[in-house]
Design a protein around this nucleic acid. Structure first.
Lengths: 213, 213
DNA sequence: GTCTATACCACGATAGAC
DNA sequence: GTCTATCGTGGTATAGAC
């Protein structure tokens, strides 16, 4: 789904994909309720008949986008999980990846993080209870068990560790940052890790890419 | 405006206030676009004619709520600003107040923090550029100038200091916290302050209510 | 599968009596 | 100021030809 969204050339996609890509753009630009089926028809160049052939209704389009993108993020978390050895490196990689995603596909981040899904997907769980977010929390928990992260309520630790970056992403999506989002990564991470890391001085035992001797 | 919202007894309010209180509740329960004028009429027991007597249109109701609540929060920030001497105490008081507000008037926090105002108030600035949020940032800046907070990008420091608490508030509004929001304050604050405070050990020079000798 | 034309309805907003 | 009744628009979704 993520590769689909990043695809620039609408004409190379099939009908169903054209509908999804166009809808995501319109939903994030104007909001779900400010986007009519006629808008989607006009901008995707797919007829209304075809739209209702592929999707039960407007809500169905939103649901397909939501579940597809959440699944993509879930895979991303799994990839990170298997690629890094310490909680420190894993969580940092998550932040880096979320920031990269925000640059490459702002609409995706906006749709995942920002939209009030409950308003148009009444049966969907809140985003914070979805797979990728639970995995982020799980990484924090493992960090505690393995002694990298101070013992405390896992929810609080997750909020502290990821909260700052998520705020920066919101600010980026709102267009109020003066520099590119990713240029803040080092500073954001430094603050985030300090807030939960075991020990007291600076970035601590796990602060540097290579731990001191 | 905040005292108005906290008022439980709808019948003691005048027409205009009944409309505002009911609208805020419906907007946050179902979302702005899922709330019709007829819904507001039905639940507020104020006729449609009266609604349009007091407000230009539906958007006008939302705008009145938004500007009123932002102004209330702005006053709250001013009160805190004048009441505490250090950045440490001021910022902590802000978190405590935001959490208290979330408990006492969840609809207010939801409307301020969560709603996608741009979708129904096209001319409004993003919430992060509004008065109270700028004041929160200003507190951080002063903390840097006075040596309590490490020198760094002010936006990053603000995101780090407030981001964790804001995430916890979101979780509380989504109903996924197991304990009352305010019971997490100490831990949330401890993490937040560590992330930006000058010095390294524990809560640092400014960590305790009374600084050590 | 793809399209056009259209049915149907809910909504925001107004008119006008009291 | 407050109300009821109603209008017109624009939206979702369907029917049915190709």
């Amino acid at each position: 789904m993520l590769t689909l969204i990043n695809n620039q050339d609408l004409s190379r996609l099939n009908r169903q994909e054209q509908i999804l890509v166009t809808s995501l753009r319109l939903f994030t630009e104007r909001g779900y309720f400010n986007t009519s089926i006629h808008d989607i028809q006009r901008e995707s160049k797919v007829s209304i008949g075809s739209i209702y052939h592929y999707f039960k209704n407007k809500e169905g389009i939103a649901r397909a986008l939501f579940t597809g993108l959440v699944a993509s993020m879930d895979e991303g978390m799994d990839r990170i999980d298997s690629q890094y050895a310490s909680a420190h490196d894993r969580c940092r990689a998550v932040l880096a990846w979320l920031m990269e995603l925000t640059r490459r596909s702002p609409a995706v981040m906006q749709f995942i993080l920002y939209a009030r899904h409950r308003e148009f997907l009444p049966d969907e769980k809140p985003i914070c209870s979805s797979g990728p977010f639970l995995k982020m929390k799980e990484m924090v928990k493992r960090g505690m068990d393995e002694g990298e992260i101070r013992r405390m309520d896992v929810t609080v630790a997750s909020a502290a560790l990821y909260g700052g970056a998520i705020r920066m992403i919101h600010l980026a999506l709102d267009g109020v940052l003066v520099r590119p989002l990713e240029s803040y990564l080092d500073d954001v991470w430094s603050c985030a890790w300090r807030s939960v890391a075991m020990g007291g001085e600076g970035e601590g035992r796990w602060g540097a890419e290579k731990a001191p001797a």
